[in-house]
Design a protein around this nucleic acid. Structure first.
Lengths: 120, 120
DNA sequence: GTAGAGTCTGACATCAGTGTCAGGTTCAAG
DNA sequence: CTTGAACCTGACACTGATGTCAGACTCTAC
């Protein structure tokens, strides 16, 4: 598929897809004319990238992480270096803290909302 | 206390504290010489602001939200407008989605980490 | 072969919070 | 008083993902 269809199917802008490629997160074949051509599995990959972005990982770390993931099509995958494992563990801990903080913030909002609703 | 102490006690930079004030999130008295003087409760307020920032709320919305919170010292608090309640409810839903997404991302990281650990 | 939609690269803009620097003032301790 | 640390304002830089624009090219359908 071409970039427009991938954008539609993932809900990610064309601009962002090109950015992902520039950052080494996404690969594409090129047509004779130079246009990007994506395999079907690009859809899942883009969604995964988005999730990792949402989790606060930077593109650089995602670029390190992606080749170490278990490939759904059984392709060869790189082994994670011990350094990367350490970094990813730190990320996981950071996400845990983030989830806890979000729960706190949610409670704050909930309190304001509940108080306001009681007054209405 | 002065701004440096508040920064130390909250872990927030002096620069950010001044920014919070410019955004109407934080108030301070001023000494005769014009330096900021903070009450004890500013500490909790700053921490709360940080939490809300971490939850993805923008300063403008936090500025609306703060006066509607139940005051720990029993001071008068504004009533939340129905519009604000709608917005805050949307924020709460967004936070819920964010927490769910983070859980997904955490699982992804966990998988990579576990796979790598098994290979070592 | 031509029209129009889609795509290409490259560059610059945006957002919001924060860092940082300059030049000047205030405060507290000696 | 003087000294040095802390503070003041204002301005500009940065980050990193994304928006947007221009000018040129490709692809598909007629």
């Amino acid at each position: 598929m071409r970039i427009g269809e991938l954008a539609d199917r993932t809900g990610v802008s064309v601009r962002s897809l090109r950015y992902y490629e520039a950052q080494g997160l996404l690969v594409s074949e090129r047509t004779a004319g130079g246009q990007r051509e994506y395999a079907e599995r690009a859809v899942d990959r883009v969604i995964l990238i988005q999730e990792l972005f949402a989790a606060g990982l930077h593109s650089k770390k995602i670029a390190q992480l992606l080749p170490c993931m278990r490939d759904p099509d059984g392709g060869p995958n790189e082994r994670a270096t011990p350094e990367l494992v350490v970094e990813l563990t730190a990320e996981r801990d950071r996400i845990d803290r983030m989830i806890a903080d979000l729960a706190t913030s949610r409670a704050v909002l909930d309190d304001v909302i509940a108080t306001a609703a009681r007054e209405l």
